[in-house]
Each structure stands twice: as structure tokens, then as C-alpha cells.
Amino acid sequence: MQVQITVNKKPRTDEVEPRQLLVHYLRDTAGLKATNVGCDTTSCGACTVLLDGVSVKSCTVLTAQADGGTVVTVEGLGGTADGGQMHPVQSAFREEHGLQCGFCTPGMVMASVGLLSENPNPTEHEVREGLEGNYCRCTGYHNILRAVLLAAQSPDAGKPEAQVSA
């Protein structure tokens, strides 16, 4: 079947199998390898992306369900490659070293952007609950928590297009 999905601001038209999972569309069809498949059972959150503005686990969404929609992966945030600045959440994860092995990080960052879009000024408890769907098996949760609270100081941290000021 044919799907039209806007991925990281770029409209795409692709021929896909109806059974293709969104995470495989992003990795294999769109070539965006940052989004990881962790548990593949809707538990770990490594595959979290934004679909139509809210966080979802892309291992449990069909590409077909996203037809006509808008997806943002961690590659769609800020980024210095094309002369831009990092997104406030990316910057805060670096500042607070909110990662160890890094496998959960793309999902953690996208879940954090989603959380901050719904709750721009979360308490520490709200950040813990807001990230309950994302596992860090290095158990580096304290620095992740600090990173999200630091990012929340930026008023735009819930917007995918936000960049830290130069």
C-alpha cells in the first residue's frame, strides 16, 4: 500500500507492506537509524518518536496507521550538522550527561520532548512518572532526571523545532 508521511519535516511517499511497523519504516524505508528497537513489546520505550505531536512507541504502531500523519525522530531535533544549534533537550542531556551506553537515549529524548510539550514545568516527580515508559538498563536515571529538569528551564523545550541560543 502507498503511504504519505511527513518525517522530520520532509513529506515522503512510500510503498509499504500493511504489516510494516513504524519503527521499521523509519529505520529501513526512511533510513533513519537513530530510533532503536529495544524490547519490541511496548515496554522499554527505546523506539519512542512523536506521531502527530505526541510520544508513541513506534514498535506498536503500523506504518499504515501513520499514513497522512507527521513523525519526528531524534534526527528531526535541532542538530549542528547543517549549521543549526542543538535542541534544548539534547543540550541538557549532554550538559548533565544523561546517558551511559546511549541505546535508550533517542527514545528518552523524544519522550522528554513529548512530556515537556504537555507539561512545560514538571516537578521532579512528574518527570519520573512522565518517563515511566522508558527504561535505561544502565540505570542512569538520576542524570536523565536532571537533564529533563534542566531542559524545562527553556520555554521551548517541548517544541521539536526549538534550538538553544548560540
Binding site: V54, S55, V56, K57, T60, V61, A111, G114, G133, N134
Partner: peptide, 9 residues
Amino acid sequence: IGDPQIRHR
């Protein structure tokens, strides 16, 4: 139910 991502879907 579940977690925020699950509740969105």
C-alpha cells in the same frame, strides 16, 4: 494504564 506513550494510543 501502561505509560504515557501507551495512553496516547
